[in-house]
């Protein structure tokens, strides 16, 4: 074997195993989603009778029709859209302003505030449910979407702030100084120069907070008791009854719940990829 032949075989082996590992990981990550889809289109009568098959012999949309027309799911779904959307928007605005301040200004107590924000991230949320319930109840914020939005925002702001701060840190100070010399106030410079450049960061933050709020179950379950204020993760549980689990409908609801998250990421993915690789390529 020639030297070049030898190296090219090694190269092929290297890349072959490289792609094999990636493929294995992707399959591992996506298989549950596939299974979700498969079960959701499997008719109830053959769900248990066909054994384990990669695709059912018959498919049906009945589960979807039922979930959309006969169940409360559309209502839960809307609640989730409102809660997750508002949380993402409010959190990102707060995080952008706070992150900018952390990135650009030196002020008294900065270290303490950063430390406090880190501390809030240290405790398991389960520990905090009782006190939070105690605080929200007299304010009439339990069993309400507003209450959920406030709690989610509070818990997401610290991380989102640090995330935004890192994006602002990546933008040279010179830019807003140039804008301030050109005739902007600091806030105008922030809005006209810095914010457009931080769009990837804003998208990443929005995406992160939206998914976190979208799939949150613990608080949604504990703070909300009525059907009218339930979000979809709680709603999914309603397919589990004392005597049976309606897998088909549950999976159909699950697939539907994926749609907004997918849409959302589809919208922001252009910025997200930029954001995650920011700094990798010199502008």
């Amino acid at each position: 074997m020639t030297l070049t032949g030898h190296t090219s075989t090694r190269k092929m082996l290297y890349w072959g195993s490289h792609y094999l590992m990636i493929a294995a990981f992707v399959i591992f990550a996506l298989f549950p989603l596939y299974w979700l889809l498969k079960v959701s289109v499997t008719p109830n009568d053959i769900l248990y009778t066909e054994g384990v098959r990669m695709w059912p012999s018959r498919t049906t949309w009945d589960n979807y029709t039922f979930v959309l027309t006969q169940s409360n799911f559309p209502h839960y779904f809307m609640n989730s859209v409102i809660v997750a959307g508002t949380t993402a928007a409010v959190t990102t605005v707060i995080a952008a302003l706070t992150g900018y301040a952390f990135s650009r200004f030196a002020f008294r107590g900065k270290v303490i505030i950063v430390a406090l924000m880190l501390i809030t991230q240290m405790f398991p949320l389960v520990m905090l449910i009782a006190p939070i319930f105690k605080i929200l109840a007299p304010l009439g914020l339990t069993d309400s979407l507003t209450g959920l939005i406030i709690v989610y925002t509070a818990f997401n702001v610290p991380f989102a702030t640090f995330l935004m701060q890192s994006f602002f840190d990546g933008i040279p100070k010179d830019l807003e100084e140039a804008a301030m010399i050109d005739g902007n106030t600091r806030f105008e410079a922030f809005r006209a120069i810095i914010l457009p450049l931080t769009l990837p960061g804003v998208a990443a933050t929005l995406g992160f907070v939206f998914t976190a709020a979208w799939s949150e179950l613990l608080f949604a379950l504990m703070l909300v008791s009525s059907e009218s204020a339930s979000t979809f993760p709680v709603g999914l549980l309603s397919f589990v009854s004392k005597f049976s689990v309606d897998f088909g409908q549950m999976m159909a609801a699950g697939v539907l719940a994926l749609i907004p998250a997918c849409l959302f990421f589809l919208l922001i993915q252009r910025y997200l990829v930029q954001g995650l690789t920011a700094g990798a390529v010199k502008g």
């Binding site: 040279p172 010179d174 830019l175 100084e177 140039a178 450049l197």
Partner: peptide, 13 residues
């Protein structure tokens, strides 16, 4: 006043 920065500080967008 106008200022020319070491990094040029051109608005990238």
């Amino acid at each position: 006043i106008a200022m020319v920065f070491q990094s040029y500080a051109l608005y990238p967008h």
